[in-house]
Amino acid sequence: MSSSPSEVPLDDAELVTRARAGDLEAYDLLVARHTASAYRTAVLLGAGPDAEDVIQEAFVKGYRKLSRYRGESSFRSWLLAIVANETRNLHRSRSRRDGLVLRAAVVNPMSEIAEDAAVEAVLAGERRAALVKALRLLPEKDREVIVCRFFLDLSEDETVTMLGWARGTVKSRTSRALTKLRGLLDREEVRRG
């Protein structure tokens, strides 16, 4: 499926059609085309150092679920919805893991495993804290809509698809989240000034 300089690059719809027919090279091209935005999505939604694992899992799930993609939205927004879900799964598993680590440390305070995992949890927290401060302070749903609309530059329709919200919810949440973000940024500016 190599293209000569005179060939027009295939669009996502054609690559999806070919990938569904078993053309792995077509799916590789989709992966290459959307890796950067998938990575940005995972990082901005809080995956931190696990972003690469999140997007790898998302691409695998995307391939398995390719038959479910109906083309009602862009492939990119459909894929980023999977990335967002995988990031949410990561947050849930981190919470469970951190709880297990704390319980293990209480049961056996000298446990090297508990100590390593606790240090790992602290380091991961510090890396997450390095994200844009004002964005970090927003509630999760506000952060998600801001990331989609402004960091990933998704259209309103793509944001509706990615987050699974009604169009009116996306519009109102975007407006409220921007107001909150402006307020946080203004307060930070006053504090530094």
Rank of each mutant, 00 (worst) to 15 (best):
V8P: 06
R18G: 04
R191S: 14
R94F: 06
E188T: 12
E120V: 07
R173D: 03
E72R: 13
A177F: 00
V101F: 02
L15F: 11
M162W: 04
R33W: 04
L154V: 06
S4V: 11
V106C: 07
V145M: 05
A118S: 14
V54Q: 00
A124D: 08
S67F: 07
F75R: 00
L123Q: 13
D50H: 01
T17M: 03
E189F: 08
G168F: 09
T169V: 09
R97L: 14
L10H: 11
L135M: 15
Y39N: 06
E86A: 01
E156Y: 03
Q56G: 05
P5Y: 05
R18C: 07
L154M: 15
A117L: 15
T159R: 03
A21P: 04
P5L: 13
K171C: 03
E14I: 04
Y69M: 06
S95D: 11
A129M: 06
R96A: 14
A13D: 11
A124N: 03
R20G: 09
L10T: 06
L185M: 15
R33A: 12
A117P: 02
L131F: 02
S2G: 11
S93R: 15
R103G: 09
T87N: 02
G62D: 02
V160Y: 03
D98F: 08
I55R: 02
A129E: 06
H34D: 07
L44T: 04
N89H: 05
W165Q: 10
L163K: 00
L131E: 00
P9L: 10
D186G: 09
A13F: 08
V170F: 03
R70Y: 01
I113H: 14
G48T: 01
A104N: 08
K141P: 02
A38H: 03
M162P: 04
E156S: 08
D12R: 03
R103K: 14
G183V: 06
F151H: 12
R136L: 12
L24K: 12
A36Y: 02
V132C: 10
K133F: 05
L100M: 14
E126I: 07
T174S: 15
S77R: 01
R143T: 02
L15H: 08
F59P: 00
S175Y: 10
R176S: 10
E188M: 13
E158Y: 02
H91S: 12
A166N: 11
E140S: 12
E188F: 07
R127H: 03
I146E: 00
R182P: 05
S95P: 00
I55N: 01
R92T: 10
A124W: 00
A26S: 14
E72Q: 13
G99H: 07
S111W: 07
E120C: 08
A36Q: 12
P109W: 09
E7M: 11
L30W: 05
T41K: 00
R143H: 04
E144I: 05
V54E: 00
E52H: 07
R97T: 14
R192H: 12
R167N: 08
T87K: 00
E140C: 06
V132S: 09
L44Q: 12
G62C: 08
V145P: 03
A105Q: 13
A26V: 10
P49I: 12
S74A: 11
L138H: 01
T174D: 01
